[in-house]
Amino acid sequence: MKRKHRRLAIVLACGLGLGSAAALTLFAFRDNLVFFVTPSDLASRGHAGETLRLGGLVAAGSVQHATIDGQPAVRFRVTDGRSSVSVSYIGVLPDLFREGQGVVTLGTLAPDGGFVASEVLAKHDETYMPKDVVEALKKSGHWQPAAGPPPPAATWNTLPATRNGG
C-alpha cells in the first residue's frame, strides 16, 4: 500500500468513526435539540408548571383580542392538526401573527391544561408570495390563508404581480 493510500484510508476511517459518533450523539439528545414541542407532545407528556416552548399553527377563528390593564391581551388556540392547546398572552404580537400562521410561544403549562405565554414568536413558512397573487388565489377560491398551507408553487408562481404587491 502506498503511503498516500494509507493516509487516505486513515482519513476515511476517522471520518466514518466521527460521523457515526455524531449521529449517535444527535440521536441520543434529539429531545433537547427541538426548539419547541407540539400540542400533541404536550398532551402526551406535559406537566403543569413546566416552562417550555409550544409551537404550532394559530387555529382559524380562535383569536380573541382583549385589553387587560391597558395592555393588549390575546387568547388563541395552537394546533398541530391532531391536538390543540389554548394559549393566553399579554403583550404586543409580532407583525406576522395571524390565523393559520405558525407561532412559537414561551410559557408555562397551567393546571387547567391551558398555556400562559410570556413571549410569542412568529414562524413563517418557506413560501414567498406577492400580495397580488394571494388576492388572486383567494378570489378564485384556490387558497384561504387561514385554512392551511398554499397550493403547489407551479399553480401560482407566474401570476402577475406589481412591485408593492397591490
Binding site: D95, L96, R98, Q101, H124, Y128, M129, P130, K131, D132, V133, V134, A161, T162, R163, N164, G165
Partner: peptide, 13 residues
Amino acid sequence: FVAPADWQQGDAV
C-alpha cells in the same frame, strides 16, 4: 427595486 414585496413580510423579504 423591482421584485415584489411578500404578502406577509412586506419589504423585509
